[in-house]
């Protein structure tokens, strides 16, 4: 039980995929202009990450390892991730066409989100079991969502604030992201070992 809690805390806070590992920066900066869009993206990525993490583990465990096909890992994972993202796209298009329109190219770009492939590969690297893989993926997704939503909320307020002209737009966003990253580094040492 303890390990599961540790995995969650580690992936959400201590080793946050966006602010500490610096993976998945593309949607982080690209979709965070409005809170509703960011929330939608967070939900989509959570779905993709969890499902892809589970499927990758299963594929790796029962299809690749028994036949000694470790060299096919990357391409298999990408295949799985692409299929899951395509499924997610269809679901989003059906349930919220506006979100689909607004997310635009960023929805299929979840396929190339390094955090998703990163989670799948890290699961293999750290030798996680089934539940650990699922939790790892879910925790990573929660961490990603947390940071994305926080950042979007802050960006909304920064957009209407008195920002000096040279800093307006992406500059102040990156500065803010850097400060957030500094803040999250304060979580280091929260989990012993």
């Amino acid at each position: 039980m303890n390990e599961y809690a540790l995995i969650l805390i580690s992936t959400i806070l201590v080793n946050n995929f966006v602010l500490v590992k610096f993976l998945g920066l593309c949607p982080f900066l690209g979709v965070s202009r409005k809170l509703e869009t960011a929330t939608g993206m967070a939900l989509a990525t959570t779905f993709v990450l969890t499902l892809a993490s589970i499927c990758s583990y299963l594929a790796n465990e029962y299809l690749l390892n028994p036949f000694g096909l470790e060299y096919l890992r990357t391409i298999t994972f990408i295949l799985i991730i692409a299929a899951v993202v395509q499924l997610t796209e269809m679901i989003v298009h059906k349930t919220s066409p506006l979100l689909y329109q607004v997310l635009g190219i960023f929805l299929p770009l979840i396929t190339t989100n390094c955090a998703v492939l990163g989670v799948a590969l890290l699961n293999v690297q750290t030798g996680h079991g089934f539940i650990e893989s699922a939790l790892y993926g879910f925790g990573a997704a929660l961490g990603f969502s947390l940071v994305l939503i926080l950042f979007a909320a802050m960006r909304e307020r920064i957009m209407v604030a008195d920002v000096p002209e040279p800093f307006k737009g992406p500059s102040i966003a990156l500065v803010t992201a850097g400060l957030m990253s500094l803040a999250f580094m304060g979580f280091a040492g929260l989990v012993k070992g």
Binding site: L63, I75, L79, L87
Partner: peptide
């Protein structure tokens, strides 16, 4: 076989 199999399964699912 495995890659082709995976691709076919996913294709059908999608």
């Amino acid at each position: 076989l495995i890659l082709a199999g995976l691709a076919i399964i996913f294709g059908l699912l999608l």
